[in-house]
Write a protein that binds this DNA or RNA. Structure first.
Lengths: 205, 205, 205, 205
DNA sequence: AATGAATGAGTCTTCATTCAT
DNA sequence: AATGAATGAAGACTCATTCAT
């Protein structure tokens, strides 16, 4: 078999097993059994169990980040709010489209070890930075309420994570992706309280 | 030393070590070294490494749940909105008051194994159920916008988790707890968009 | 069993096995089988297979070096020549008294790896330095011929090694230790050629 | 590439690597990387890693042995003493001329395994037998002192090994080859002690 | 004649748990 | 109530060798 094909195959099998059993419970034996290759073959393509996990998640993080764009303010671009909704939709799409990888991201990769925590940290920081940027921009345009954008971006990220996580466990518990995105957006961004009930009335018109 | 005191001491040390190194990286040797007891002593009080972790987290989950109350609608009770704000404040307080345990809850306990995932699942489900109840109530009272309360409760929980997690890593990154609770509430519950900018205008006044 | 006793026992067994099978052919399984202990017990006392080998040989090198004394020139001391003979005898005695360790020193430890080579190197250098010192002293006293003492000390060391090595293979091939020491001394130090036949007649009588 | 040429090339590369890293630390991968051939190619020319090492050392042992001649007593031959000096010089020459192979012989081949030890043993035995023969002859001619020739030959061999070994580590530590041979001969054969100081006066003429 | 992907037996090492004192 | 020596199952990783192309 060709080098890249075999590599890809083993990687795919590893995703499956890691997602099913978790990082620690997964043994190299499990992976090679799933892939139907010999022990040595595994090490022909990956330096270690840790290494294949790294790689697999790095790819995924990359893929997710690539979906996040800065809000485009240029003439004729989509309305900023629609852009943000699109963002959330796209990310939800990626996460729910690769359930196994998402499970790994949200469950198995958490608390793996110090190095990995750092890596995830950086990922979420970057995500947060991008989100903050968009929010800040929205504020200058008068579309987003005055608030601590750092906290706000954490809320958006946390909400998406929690919703996705829930859907990984009970796939049919919530509405379909596109509706869901809409819903999440309305809740997080639009607020739960009816305007008149708000603590600090958010800028009455 | 007295049975309960010793037990408590070992438990406390275990929290420290688990928080610092994570569940898998922590060995029983680490724990007994921290506690300054012999190996045998550990097993005198706890059935296994897994068992002490269980116990320690169960206690914590219990403590957190005890902070969550159903919204009280009886005559003369606090205004519902204030109650919810109090809820979030109390939970944030507990989580940020026990940083080590929170670290364990949010990092080390995640993806530990199937059994544990189930346990956490149940915990978050219960939390969500309570939250949903309050939200639903708010809706009947016209205080909460029409929305999928299941999604909304996930957003609230996810936001709190994410904010706390961030504060565990960088303790001084965000405003002080009480202000933070206010902020989180305004963002999640009050919404980010200024009312006039909302996708589906939530109840035009 | 007491810590030191058990440690000593395992060490002794390791010597036996290493001597019999060589470093690389010896597995930890071999050692624990010989010692009749469990796998974990081995690692309770020694960090690794390499580590037990190190320790075992370090001890031996130490023991050998402790036998080498500088020639004592003070009033009333033994005649220098007798001292040197005593030296050779003592060393031969140690080496032939611990055949297994000597086998390890001369066979298994050679070419083990770069680190070990360095260690042996340093050992032989120290041995050579001590020998050179004695020879140089002998020269100033007119007892030792003019020659390159560095070469001479290498010859002495090499001769002892070769003789011992031979005796490890065929224990009864050569005369008994004390006679052997005498013989080696006469040959190395006294020379093989009858004086009149020497290349550069060393001090015609 | 032609069969013999390719074979020779791989062999040469193997010498280099074995000398640098030692037998055990050298992997077949190292050798083929050095030679720039594919894995399969290696096994086209050599049965195994062990086999190429065998071959390489066998060749060398052969080459060394071929330098050792019985002392020629026939009418008109060189004086026996000069012949012996020539012997030592030639052997030193060969050993110092092929430093990598000598390193392998003196370091990596020692204690490799039982089979190999036997092979080396036989080599040194043959060398010793030849040397003993010459010494015995020297004795009958009155040129060599009365002594145990078995011990004497071991001393000669051991001295040469040690001196060469030292020179492999520090190439410039000792005098140049030809002078060195002279020196070694004078020391081993001629003796270190001035005649009057000898234990058992070596047969005063 | 050459390649290099695949194999799997073989070892070291870790660590939770037990139990005699 | 406490100790700590002993256990052994489990798992990661290496590398010489084979064989289809």
């Amino acid at each position: 078999m060709e080098r890249t094909a075999r590599r890809e195959q083993v990687l795919k099998c590893a995703v499956r097993v890691f997602s099913r059993k978790g990082y620690h419970a997964t043994t190299v034996s499990d992976i090679i059994a799933e892939a139907g290759v010999a022990r040595g073959t595994f090490y022909l393509y990956f330096k270690s169990k840790r290494n294949i996990f790294d790689e697999l998640l790095d790819d995924y993080l990359q893929r997710i980040l690539s979906q996040v764009r800065r809000v485009d303010m240029s003439e004729g671009a989509e309305p900023p709010l629609d852009q943000m909704r699109g963002e959330v939709e796209r990310i939800l799409g990626v996460l729910l489209g690769s359930r196994e990888l998402s499970r790994i991201l949200l469950h198995e990769a958490v608390g793996l070890d110090a190095d990995f925590d750092r890596k995830l940290d950086e990922f979420y920081s970057r995500l947060a930075a991008l989100t903050e940027g968009s929010l800040r921009l929205g504020q200058t345009m008068g579309l987003v309420t005055e608030c601590d954008v750092r906290v706000a971006s954490l809320c958006i990220i946390g909400s998406v994570k929690e919703v996705v996580d829930h859907l990984l466990i009970e796939p049919d518990a919530l509405p379909e992706t596109s509706i869901l995105a809409e819903e999440v957006l309305n809740i997080i961004l639009g607020g739960l309280f009816v305007p008149s009930a708000r603590t600090r009335p958010a800028q009455a018109p």
